[in-house]
């Protein structure tokens, strides 16, 4: 009986963790949608900052596909950035006034 109660508690805990995980992930995916077609500044290693128009990210957030990547050696019309090379990315957004 005690075992059953414990199992039930664990299942509830797993369900709660999954619901929280889904909420956090949903909010992150919404952020990626908001980043689409925005001009983003990427901070890379060695204090290199590049700007590009954000297109898409892959499911595991391992790569970002960008366009018009402005690098110190010129502009790349299309590029794939390895997320492991990116430290942070920054963009402007507007607050929706209701």
């Amino acid at each position: 009986m005690e075992e059953e109660v414990m199992q039930c508690g664990e299942e509830n805990n797993v369900a709660e963790q999954q619901a929280t995980r889904a909420l956090l992930r949903k909010r992150f995916l919404e952020t990626l949608l908001a980043m689409n077609n925005q001009k983003i500044t990427f901070s890379m290693h060695d204090r290199i900052n590049v700007t590009a128009t954000f297109e898409v990210a892959d499911i595991d957030i391992l790569h970002f596909q960008v366009s018009n990547l402005e690098t110190p050696i010129g502009v790349q019309p299309h590029a794939l950035l390895r997320c492991s090379d990116v430290i942070a990315c920054c963009f402007k957004t507007q607050t929706a006034r209701t």
């Binding site: 952020t31 908001a34 980043m35 957030i61 997320c83 492991s84 990116v86 430290i87 942070a88 990315c89 920054c90 963009f91 402007k92 957004t93 507007q94 607050t95 006034r97």
Partner: peptide, 13 residues
Amino acid sequence: DTSNECTVVMGHA
């Protein structure tokens, strides 16, 4: 004003 700055800090960094 209504413009905000959004920063995504990558998890590994």
